[in-house]
Design a protein around this nucleic acid. Structure first.
Lengths: 359, 359
DNA sequence: CATTTTTGTTGGATCGATTCAAATTTGTGC
DNA sequence: GCACAAATTTGAATCGATCCAACAAAAATG
């Protein structure tokens, strides 16, 4: 009678095959996880029973609970999941993370939190041993949520002023200086800056007070680097227009329009991302301005696309892949310490910069 | 005395705070997962205790075991993990998968199996509700392994002849025909084919017998499409060189060298992937052959890069994103049925094809 | 043949939560 | 103040494995 009822196959458990094979569940477990300790004869019998009953092998869910380690690292962002596959910067970073994970056999779990309610849940319920956080905007909330999981995590790329969390970033001041010096040495004296976000979600021209109260010290530092260097060349940095964008097309275009609406047009643009720099190239070209003959542009990041656009982009290259590798290793080899690493950057000169036009 | 020993903080469990707050496990659990059923006063007390003890919230590992559902889908491949972020085809596919996952709040777990031993383990221990398999080469082993997990899974893009597994693919015969017809109508009569793998890991020229015994029916069908259509134009398909590659630079280049070593050079190349097509463009250009004046090339896939290369690539476009979306939904809405879907393809004419050179 | 080793097997404890039927408390109407 | 309904709380059972101390059997040693 029982057999008649057992129609709806509920998944076979290890205990089921142990019973069917007439061994203890301890032995049954060993057959799969440490086959060498069980006598060949028994091993074969248990395996045969498992096969016959259609056992799928030890369920990772059960193992996980016991083992405690998931063997996967979570990568979180407030962007939609497709960000990881579409954004050039993210892709190079992910390649670095992948490399480190491949080397140790760890998996990668992508965690997105495009909408606020699900963000919390997704972070809270992700099955991972630690997190790498892409702190674009809304980063602070992401960090807060992740901190509550009490798992190891590393913040990338924002330069939070919170010294209590592990982070890997680049020397933004040095990067800013390199970019500015390169342009200044080419004779440029009239500049404009396309800036990443400084704090709250806003776009538009930036005032010195806003810079001082910036949440994102990464942005602030790049700006500081630009200004420090340019001051050395006698440029009045107070008069340089700085337009804060959301690092996407719409707000960047708005920034360019605002910048070029004025009378004194810049001969050089300092962009805090390659993304904005490439949008700027397109925008200028579409308006008949030649890059670099009329306007020079320096980006920031060093994404591969920059080498392919027309003209190829001069930029401040971050060691993106290496940052990814290190971030992953930081999680994989977590030892309880808070680590903050700052990587160097380098100027990559391509064709988007040239001598200042003599007016 | 005990308190002296308890130095090494082992993570706080729900049971710990239940005891500390003087409530049962059940109530403590409800405080977190169904707060509305517990009296406000108790709820606050428990929460306060949790806060004070530094409780990280219900551990997903425990919840998972009970709930049974991971709420994540695994994407598996035999390539290294970085494949997902670097390969153009994979990226577009992943974007589609991401979209479907974002919509339902599911996560994505990337599972690689670059090396054989770890392959098995990674597939066996991945914490997912189902798999989407990128069946490039070595696909059959991947499928075998996954089948053993007895989880829902979908195979992408290979056109396995095994009808018992769910799969989404495109109409390869129709695609082949479209490509061939386009070239034939431009007057081409001398062709060469850069083929994807037909079966075991090998590269080189392909014989008709090998085609008949092909494991990968997707490859076979594209070839069939090419040949059927060309026959209609009176081309002797027997004499068309077909070179099987591994869809990467080295073997594709080898194929081109072999093809162009002969006396009767083709005026048109049918490539079974955009990847190979673009490699071919570069190879030909580097050798002073003009595309499409000297040689026309049609790709297959329709990856975005094809539109950007020089010259832009004529290709057979698959609805890659849509395939990804459907695959993800197939796992997410799994109902126990085996589904096999075939999507349509379309010819996208760009500048890599032109009239056959006369001579 | 008795004793020690080696090799295999057992079954209870554990990992960290959720669920649900039953027990208890609180609230309502009369 | 009582009966009955509604709202809370309890505690045992469960999810599916692994670990390990204890035990049993077989093999090696004296």
């Amino acid at each position: 009678m029982a057999s008649l009822i057992e129609g709806q196959a509920r998944p076979i458990r290890l205990a089921d095959i142990a019973k069917a094979a007439g061994v203890s569940h301890g032995t049954a477990s060993n057959v799969f996880s440490r086959p060498e300790v069980v006598r060949a004869e028994v091993r074969e019998r248990v395996k045969a029973v498992a096969e016959a009953m259609g056992y799928a092998g030890p369920d990772p869910k059960g193992r996980l609970l016991r083992a405690g380690k998931v063997n996967a690292i979570g990568v979180g962002t407030t962007e939609p999941l497709s960000y990881f596959f579409e954004d050039p910067f993210a892709r190079v970073m992910m390649a670095g993370i992948s490399e480190a994970c491949d080397a140790t056999g760890a998996g990668i779990a992508l965690v997105s939190a495009a909408n606020q309610e699900k963000l919390a849940w997704n972070i809270q319920s992700a099955l991972v041993d630690g997190f790498i956080l892409f702190c674009i905007e809304g980063g602070s909330r992401l960090v807060e949520l992740t901190r509550e999981r009490r798992l190891p995590f590393v913040a990338l790329e924002l330069g939070f002023h919170d010294e209590t969390i592990s982070a890997i970033g680049v020397n933004n001041i040095a990067g800013g200086r390199l970019a500015a010096r390169h342009l200044a040495e080419l004779g440029h004296r009239r500049f404009a800056v396309l800036s990443l976000t400084l704090g709250e979600d806003r776009t538009g021209f930036v005032t010195p007070e806003m810079v001082r109260s910036a949440v994102y010290t990464g942005t602030r530092d790049r700006l500081a680097g630009y200004f420090e260097e340019l001051s050395g060349f006698g440029v009045d940095t107070q008069s340089i227009p700085v337009f804060e964008t959301e690092n996407e097309e719409r707000s960047t275009t708005a920034g360019l329009e605002a910048i070029f609406a004025g009378g004194e047009r810049p001969t050089a643009i300092l962009a805090m991302s390659d993304r904005m720099a490439m949008i700027a190239i397109d925008w200028l070209t579409a308006r008949g301005l030649k890059v670099p003959q009329d306007v020079s542009i320096v980006g920031f990041d060093g994404v591969p696309d920059g080498a392919l656009c027309d003209p190829p982009l001069t930029t401040i290259a971050q060691p993106i892949t290496e940052i990814g590798r290190r971030a992953a290793r930081m999680i994989l080899d977590y030892d309880g310490a808070v680590r903050r690493e700052t990587m160097g950057v380098e100027l990559v000169v391509r064709a988007s910069t040239g001598p200042a036009p003599r007016s």
